[in-house]
Design a binder for these strands. Sequence first.
DNA 1: TAGATTGTTAATCGATTAACAATC
DNA 2: TAGATTGTTAATCGATTAACAATC
Lengths: 221, 221
Amino acid sequence: MAFKSRVSDAVVRRLPMYYRHLRELEKAGVVRISSQELGERMNLTASQIRQDINCFGGFGQQGYGYHVSNLKERIGAILGLQHAYHVIVIGAGNIGRAIANYAGFEREGFHIQAMFDVSSALVGVDVHGILVQPMEKLEGWLSAHAVDIAVLAVPAAVAQPIADALVAGGVRGIWNFAPVDLTLPQGVAVNNVHLSDSLHILSYRMNEKDLFAELHAGRDA
Amino acid sequence: MAFKSRVSDAVVRRLPMYYRHLRELEKAGVVRISSQELGERMNLTASQIRQDINCFGGFGQQGYGYHVSNLKERIGAILGLQHAYHVIVIGAGNIGRAIANYAGFEREGFHIQAMFDVSSALVGVDVHGILVQPMEKLEGWLSAHAVDIAVLAVPAAVAQPIADALVAGGVRGIWNFAPVDLTLPQGVAVNNVHLSDSLHILSYRMNEKDLFAELHAGRDA
DNA sequence: TAGATTGTTAATCGATTAACAATC
DNA sequence: TAGATTGTTAATCGATTAACAATC
């Protein structure tokens, strides 16, 4: 029963995937599953699944496998989903509004409590029951409320200074949709959704075959 | 001058990041940069940058470094950004609309030409100049138009069957926002934006320290 | 008890880093 | 030419896979 003190990013990125599949299995009424079966379902090796899970402790049972609901709950707890989070959204543009409108996060304990934007055209607009406030009110809000997570959906140029203000105001996690790599002090968590990067990776994959055909042709010419 | 025939995912994921930083540098008027300097900027080792770039050929010059604009163009071409893409959006919910409304992709050659949704409440709605069509018209559209990329922003339960229809209709790339891991034939590219997974990773990171404190306490108890 | 499957250690594979000769 | 910095090969590190003893 060895506990690693820090889990590799490769493992962390797979955790939500485990959670998703286990939730589906639970919904489908599956009670137990072996690492073998789960691996076939998720396109991972049974070995990798057992290694991953054992970063956090032995949740299985020899000769039986894993109890689906139990493992789901364990991984949910590892992901911090047993907690409730106070969330604010910075930027009421397309992305900011889409996130605020999505009801699913609320159900998982991510409670959006305020929204801010610089644009006077957006200030006062009602997004899913929340009135967009002017950016000048951000600092005041942060000193009056305990905010856990900020959704950062602002243009690249202003993302870093706003992130600094958020950190100064006590925010512990930033969900960053701005196309920049933020510099944050130790202890503040960040996760990026770089939509443009993601689309570029898609177009890369669509062209990879041709790309190497060209490169080789170029070399041979 | 060795060309690998297939580039690892780790490298591919960094390509858009290079592109982003090089574009910024170009905009800032920087003409040349060494792997050392670029590495400091991007939090990578100089060695890794040279290895990454040399997956595609030698774009630098000994004693000089890399020409920013040139390298940016090269990586842009590797990412397939010199092409124009015909894009359709499936699902006119929060995410589908946010993507369609975002003008930036249009500027990079990703031209959204149609939108589809099952909901009669959304059919006929104008999103950024595009009228949402009923889902029944998808198949007909695909046979009448050459679609390169489909943005899949639909509920998990219907994502796989719709993806199958898209592939049957000639779509070569799927930008998947549904929280499922799609099964697609070889030759069809996919890239996922799993928003919920991303938020879960953030909450994991916010709690990691406490998590291991608990695990250790549990062990010692 | 026998069979199944985990938890864990050892072996392999691949990605990152270091080193250095090539060359601008 | 001397200095700088790449391209590339070798060394290291970490992640994945395989193997198997522990045990339910």
